[in-house]
Write a protein that binds this DNA or RNA. Structure first.
Lengths: 165, 165
DNA sequence: ACATAATATTAGCCAAGGCTAAATTTATTC
DNA sequence: GAATAAATTTAGCCTTGGCTAATATTATGT
């Protein structure tokens, strides 16, 4: 009923600020620009919105920190991001960089309980000895075989299955 | 280099038109409205764009059909949709309806080669006897255990994808 | 065939979230 | 402590893709 709905963009900013603050206590707009690949005016505008939503402490020309609510929301996004990213890496064998990029998009659009399923699955497969450690290797072989016979992507190089661009 | 980039919205319209045409040869704007939960003017506007992109045959007050290019693009979207949907149902145990809703969002944002991974995985797990038929059941149990201890979703169901303002 | 209902279209608005250019503020350097 | 550089903000534009209200067209029922 309350809760105001958080847009994808807002989630991205929260996540970015959280990450930056991990390393330097506070965020400056410039850092956020770099992290999200947007221009400075976009960041200013976003910060005003975040402040208005009660997620950040912000005053013009000042440093940016997360409020408790912002911290909570950010941690939630990060949880989803990391869970999905793990899934992509550990279950599907996607390389780290692309897994993170992909998680970054998935995290906003998939319902939380389904995201938890992804996370559970990832954990399950890793713990489970129902299928040996063979399992993952076999899948990678299976997937690359499929890949070979598929028009799907233009996939530039694709010379060695993993890490294609 | 060419290829013009297809937006999410365009993909949704293509998919909808394709599905409708499966059952009734041609689509009328009204059907598209219903399928996508948008208003008639939105459909008109979209159809003009689709026609301009060369994906549909459309004249005001006329029926809508897909051009060969539109057909190709639509089939591609449908392939991704069904593959992802299968994955969600068969690997993660999500129910059909929500799987379809979720696939509908995932299909636009995940790179094609990664979508193929999802699809491969789904097939692999189903064929593979590396892990018995126990595997899926055990996972469901595992997941519901996890689930119990999670606040996760209010899930409000949002009956049909778009438009929750 | 004509009145009414159903469909489509046009016109124009709105919000989100980018962007550039210009102005302002803060930092740095001699 | 000026002068310049760097960072930030303001102002205003643009595109996408919805929407409503009003208009126009097509279909239907008697």
């Amino acid at each position: 009923m309350t809760e105001a709905m958080i847009s994808e963009s807002v989630e991205d900013y929260l996540e970015a600020i959280f990450q930056i603050n991990q390393q330097q206590q506070v965020s400056r707009p410039k850092d956020i620009c770099k992290m999200l690949n947007v221009t400075a005016p976009s960041v200013t505008k976003a910060l005003k919105l975040l402040a208005q939503l009660g997620f950040v402490n912000y005053a013009p020309f000042g440093m940016v920190t997360l409020t408790p609510a912002g911290e909570k929301a950010a941690k939630d996004v990060v949880h989803r991001h990391e869970g999905l990213s793990s899934f992509l890496v550990n279950v599907l064998g996607v390389d780290e960089k692309r897994a993170s990029e992909t998680a970054c998009k998935m995290e906003h659009i998939i319902a939380p309980d389904i995201i938890e399923r992804f996370i559970s699955y990832s954990k399950f497969v890793q713990n489970s000895d129902l299928c040996g450690p063979e399992f993952f290797k076999k899948f990678l072989k299976f997937a690359s075989r499929k890949n070979a016979s598929t028009k799907s992507t233009k996939s530039k190089s694709s010379k060695s299955s993993r890490k294609e661009q």
